[in-house]
Amino acid sequence: MQDVLNATTLGSIYLLFALGMALVWGTIGILNFAHGATFMFAAFIGHLVTARVELPLLGVIAVAVLVGALISVLTQLLAFQPILKRAKNRHAAELRILIAGIGVAAIPLAIAQRQTRSTPFGLRSSYSPQVYEVFGLRITTTAIIIIVLGLVIGIGMTLWLRRSRHGLALRALGVDAETSAGMGVNRTTLAFGTMAVAGGLAGLAGALLTLQLGAIAPETGDQLIIKAFAIIVLGGLGSMAGTVIGAYVLAGAETLVLVMNWGTWVDAVSFGLIFLILLARPQGLLGRKEVRRT
């Protein structure tokens, strides 16, 4: 049971991180490889701020969310938007957006590495996590917050995209940008809004993860990016529900390997699993049939 709980916590961590990336990819079609750097830098600014003033939990989160949203919007303004403007079609832009994201990501990473010399950094907060013990299961308040927020935001976003007008507009963009623009969807505004939300989510994940793990290093974002990418593809590109499931599948697989104490095989098992699932379901678990994106 404890292992299931651990897997749920780990899955929620991955989910919080992956949600922003999945949202942007599923709607405005941008695969943002700077997401990990946004996550890290939001936590890093939080670290710098809290080293001077002690903030309550909500204060720390607010700082990180704002920084995350800001970086994300800047990325969109300075990198992705110009590419989309110049590209003839989305297919041509795809690879360049990927590379631009990688380039952008190198900048905050270099700054944080220089400032910290890659020593781990944490967040100082008046909030101190409690440990609860229920039916022999141990869980911290931070873990509870992560699980609840991960599930609420994940499911909430899925429903919102499905039901609301904005959600419809966004999904329309994801399916056919030109036509939906012709039908009155303001693409630029929506794109900036989505990037801001995604950046905010990266910041939220940054703050909560740093609290849960105690500290992160500048390179932590890089390690999560590849997992998030795996989760999004596993769930099926463009499907938020798929992302939620993908996160827990990956976390479940990793936890299982740990319980069996095959620690050094973690990546082989989890990525092997993803490999096999893709063979069985070439569009991911819940992916829509690709229109044509080869």
Partner: peptide, 28 residues
């Protein structure tokens, strides 16, 4: 031959998984 049905980023992910598995095999 195994992954020929996959397209686009799905193919990208499967081949990245392959690469990471090579690395794990080397560790073990």
């Amino acid at each position: 031959l195994v992954v020929q049905r996959l397209t686009g980023l799905y193919m990208g992910m499967a081949t990245i998984a392959f690469t990471l598995i090579v690395s794990v095999l080397a560790v073990n």
